[in-house]
Write a protein that binds this DNA or RNA. Structure first.
Lengths: 346, 346
DNA sequence: ATGAAAGCGCTAACAA
DNA sequence: TTGTTAGCGCTTTCAT
């Protein structure tokens, strides 16, 4: 921490390396950025000095010159308390790993929750980041619109809901496919009365997932009750109680839920009614959150391939940054089903 | 995304502003960094042009000159799957918010899980960050040692376990106090046989928390069984079953756990034995994770004041960066207890 | 209170 | 294949 300590080891610069290696600064620069231009022995000599000195190019200087920071901006939102939606964590980690492979880093910034644009402008004007990854497309297209307008590169995790055909690079996971997978899984376990427990109709993501349940039911020549509620455990618990009141041949014995939170709410209702999860009633959640993993007796859930999402995003980012036309600027990935005891009939 | 778009709106520079305002570049710089040096009317005029143009200083140039990036490095680790430990999420968010208030941003980097030093060196040599926040102090002091050796500023979230007196700025939350709080809470609910369910003795954090349970029990003139197991739901479930076998006056009716995962495991055991959480047996978890919030019937848990931790860290960071002696370089914060139905006797 | 000059460390363009 | 020159946008002297 002492200042003299810090001064005692001044960081080597290009000039230091050049002098030590008996070449010009430019040659050192080339050794780093265009090694194929150097003769083999020169390269080796320069490389040796670089290693010996532990030289790393100064990022600020490089950034000033190349106008590229190798930083990707990501607005980091708080995980909602009270729900089991802890996707962000896994996604961010995947993104950090994926960007590291191309020499980029993630720059986190905060934003006023009520102003989707807050934070973006400042970083843009300061040329602090090369590009953005936008995660909250469900909230509207304000950020994407802004970035497109000023010509700032970005990729979104989430399709452009309002403009399905928008010429904008995005990666998303099919919620419809996830719910379809879940429904088919319950059908295969001989459930017939399968209910949908989802979010309010204003949620695009919720409606997308719901459509998958509907499609699978229709394909089986069935129909089931669909309920739209708020995303919390209690609302789901109460809704489940109501749905389980029914009797007769098409009584509900299966639940496909828009979130793990809702799925856990159903499990609570089952516990209160003395019904056995999996055996009497099958329940599937969504997002494979920590909650689904630790809750009793284990909640079957739709899992998004976030690691793959991150990789594809970085690939698109690369294309966008190099101004090359991207091969496939819109990519829909498929989720998988993680089966646990809430859908196993033993 | 088109290049012409980007060129059509070249970012204004100091020179642009200076010309528009009819002053020298230096005056504009002063308006930004030392406004008190300017005459009032000059300042107003310059400020007006800055606002009009939407000028923001180029970070790279400023960084090159001042050798300060206003970036704080944070190695982002994966949240452990299968446990309910999703602290990182909340902490990172708090940190982003706290650093934003001082004009700093968080730079995330990945690291080889097996090499605690990986990632640090590179960022240091590239002068990419001004300081680091270290979160995995329980794993040893390799990072802190490295950073101290090269004179790089850092603050740790977590005390220096191996060297309690180390002259190193840190912020931590007292796990002992948390477990004490939990135990006292159960004692107040007339529980007497209170067990400790914790991690292996090699975990400093685990032993710290355990000591709080022990202290509270001793203060009440009691003693209880302490069990050390791996941090997963099943291990806790089985351990709880065993502990609940006992009968007689000092049979176990309360559990203080080192994590929510373990607490949830106990709840599973209760469900399997037909015991009512809260009423028959009280259970307290640790960390107030999403799992504690959504699990049935709600798990009482010790909550760390992560928002406050972040604020204190930023305060220490500030001191460390300005090379001023920090008022109190080691700060221990107190956790709180979030009471839910797992400890309520109705 | 304001301006002029210098230079942070790097790379693009050009020259040798 | 290597070296020279210039300048990215800013702030730190120092002069006015």
């Amino acid at each position: 921490m002492s200042p003299d300590r810090r001064l005692s080891e001044p960081h080597p610069t290009l000039a230091t390396v050049a002098e030590r290696a008996g070449v010009s600064r430019q040659t050192v620069s080339n050794a780093l950025n265009n090694p194929e231009l150097l003769r083999e022995d020169t390269l080796a000599r320069v490389q040796a000095v670089i290693d010996e000195l532990g030289y790393t190019p100064n990022r600020a200087a490089r950034q000033l010159r190349t106008r590229s920071s190798h930083l990707i901006g990501l607005r980091f939102e708080q995980a909602q308390e009270g729900t089991s939606n802890a996707l962000m964590d896994r996604f961010v980690h995947s993104l950090v790993e994926a960007t590291a492979r191309t020499g980029h880093h993630i720059l986190l910034f905060a934003g006023d929750p009520d102003d989707p644009l807050d934070g973006y402008r400042e970083l843009l004007r300061a040329t602090a980041v090369d590009a953005f990854v936008i995660t909250d497309t469900y909230a509207g297209t304000a950020q994407a619109d802004l970035l497109r307008r000023v010509g700032a590169p970005f990729v979104t995790f989430g399709r452009p809901w309002d403009e399905p055909g928008a010429a904008q690079p995005w990666v998303d996971v099919s919620g419809a496919r996830g719910a379809e997978l879940a429904t088919e899984h319950l059908l295969a376990a001989a459930h017939r009365g399968i209910a949908w427990l989802g979010w309010e109709a204003s949620s695009r993501i919720g409606e997308d997932r719901r459509s998958g349940w509907q499609a699978a039911m229709r394909a089986a020549g069935l129909d089931g009750p669909g309920v739209r509620i708020a995303d919390n455990v209690d609302a789901a618990r109460m809704a489940a109680h109501e749905l389980l009141e029914g009797t007769g041949p098409d009584r509900v014995t299966g639940f496909v839920c828009a979130s793990d939170t809702l799925g856990i709410g159903v499990l609570h209702a089952l516990a209160e009614r003395g019904l056995r999860p999996g055996i009497d009633v099958g329940v599937v959640g969504f997002d494979d959150s920590l909650g689904a993993q630790v809750t009793w007796p284990g909640l079957t859930s739709v899992r998004q391939p976030l690691e793959q999402v991150a990789i594809e995003i970085v690939e698109l980012l690369h294309g966008v940054l190099s101004l090359k036309p991207v091969r496939e600027p819109a990519r829909m990935l498929e989720p998988t089903l993680v089966v646990r005891r809430s859908t196993q009939r033993e």
